[in-house]
Every structure is written in C-alpha cells, then in structure tokens.
C-alpha cells in the first residue's frame, strides 16, 4: 500500500518537475508565431547559411575534441605517465576557469598567429577541452588492461590497437563527448563576439547582436529552430550518453 502511495507521489513529483521545465519553453514557443517561422525559414535568407555554418562548426568541434580527447586518454592511461593524479587535478581546475580569464590572452595569441576573423579562431581553442579529456580518461579506466596487453602482443602499432581494441569499447563515451562538445560549440557566445568580426562568420548563437529591433520577434522562432538539431542528436544518442557518463568512477 505504501509502495503504491509512494509511486503516486513520485509520479506527481515528476509531473511538477516536467511542468517547471516546460513552462519557459512553452512561453517561448507561444511567442513564436507561425508567421515568424515562415519568415525565418523562407524569407530571411540569412538563416540557412548561418544555421549550416553553426552546425558545421559545432560538428568540427565535436569531432576534433573527441579525437584529441581519445588520444590524450589513451596516452594518459596506457603510456605509463607519472603523476596522472596531478594531471587530472589540473584538468579539473582548467575546467573551472571562467572564460573571461583567458579572453584577452587568447585574442592576442590568435592575432599573432593571424587566425583572427577566420573559422579556425572559433574551432581551435575548443579542441583541447579539459572536460572532454577528463571524461574520456575516466571512461577509459573501465577498459580492462588485459585486452590492451593482449593486443600489444599482436602488434606494435598504436593505431591498430586503438582501432581494434579500444575504440569499440569506447563507443558510449565517444558519443557522450561528441554530444556535449557539439552543444558547447553550437551555443558559444563570447568567442564569436570577440574573435570574429565578419558577419558571415558569426554563428547563430550571437543572434541577439545582429537582429535589428525590427526583427527581434524572430528570436523566438530562431531559438526553437536551434533546439531541433540538439534534440535530434540527443534523441539518437541518449543510450550512449547515459552509458558513457555512468562510468565516471575511479
């Protein structure tokens, strides 16, 4: 009896949470009228190029950071590196550094490499992400050492071992890191504002700046449209995501 009652309570709680989560979304949706959607999708020709550009950058960041993180995790775990705990501590610390801290030096760095006002300026700084590396390492910890040992007996090529033994087991984590880095890349605001000046290189996330006051009602429609790729991505990869993040243990 208590169990039944408990179950109802739990369901009510979930309902309340769902409503709280949905309320602002619904408010946003209601403010976006069909006419807005129409004008964004059909009339305003800036939307599609910006959309695909944002998607492109986010995908590049996702893939790039996965590659970098996998390599780093492999190196850290199997490469017999000393003071791994120290490195992990530093990674955690770097993850917490607020963006404003490094904004100006990054700008100067990019400028001296003459990468400003180019797509690379948006992608490169995000490739080495402490979050991704940390996550990948934690996951890789769950990969048994024996498989690696066995593969090492077969071949001396790191690449082969990577592809045949490690990567298949890391699928979940790779998906997780990709989804998170994709979300980061899609929603970044400060970097495009400061590192890039050309209008064509500014992704959708800095929309507030470029929309004139006449078009401000389009913000809601664009917001909904931005949500869609993320939803799709999350929908497809939810299982992997859950599994990947579950392995955050020592």
């Amino acid at each position: 009896m208590a169990k039944f009652f408990g179950k109802i309570l739990i369901h009510i709680f979930q309902l309340v949470i769902a409503v709280c989560l949905l309320l602002p979304v619904v408010l946003t949706v209601t403010k976006a009228t069909l006419a807005d959607f129409f004008s964004v999708l059909v009339e305003e020709f800036w939307f599609y190029p910006k959309f695909w550009f944002s998607l492109g950058i986010a995908a590049a960041i996702g893939i790039g950071s996965v590659v970098v993180a996998v390599l780093a995790a492999v190196g850290l775990k199997f490469g017999r590196i000393k003071h791994v705990k120290g490195i992990l501590f530093v990674l955690l610390l770097l993850m917490m550094m607020p963006l404003q801290t490094t904004l100006l030096p990054n700008y100067i760095g990019l400028r001296d490499l003459s990468l400003l006002d180019k797509t690379e300026a948006l992608i490169l700084p995000m490739l080495a992400s402490p979050f991704a590396i940390y996550l990948m390492y934690q996951y890789m910890d769950s990969v048994p050492y024996e498989g690696f040992e066995a593969a090492r007996l077969e071949t001396g090529s790191v690449f082969r071992i990577l592809c045949s033994v490690i990567l298949p087991q890391m699928r979940a984590c790779i998906a997780a890191v990709f989804v998170f880095m994709f979300a980061e890349g899609f929603n970044m605001v400060e970097q495009p504002l400061y590192f890039v000046k050309k209008e064509t290189l500014k992704p959708l996330s800095v929309l507030a700046e470029s929309l004139t006051s006449a078009n401000s009602h389009l913000i809601f429609a664009v917001g909904i449209l931005c949500m869609i790729p993320m939803l799709l991505l999350y929908g497809f990869y939810e299982e992997e995501l859950t599994e990947g993040l579950g392995h955050l243990k020592a």
Partner: peptide, 8 residues
C-alpha cells in the same frame, strides 16, 4: 571591440 583591441 575597440576596448579589446586597445588592451591587446
């Protein structure tokens, strides 16, 4: 933008 350029 200008502040960034001046500081940099």
């Amino acid at each position: 933008e200008l502040a960034l350029k001046v500081l940099a």
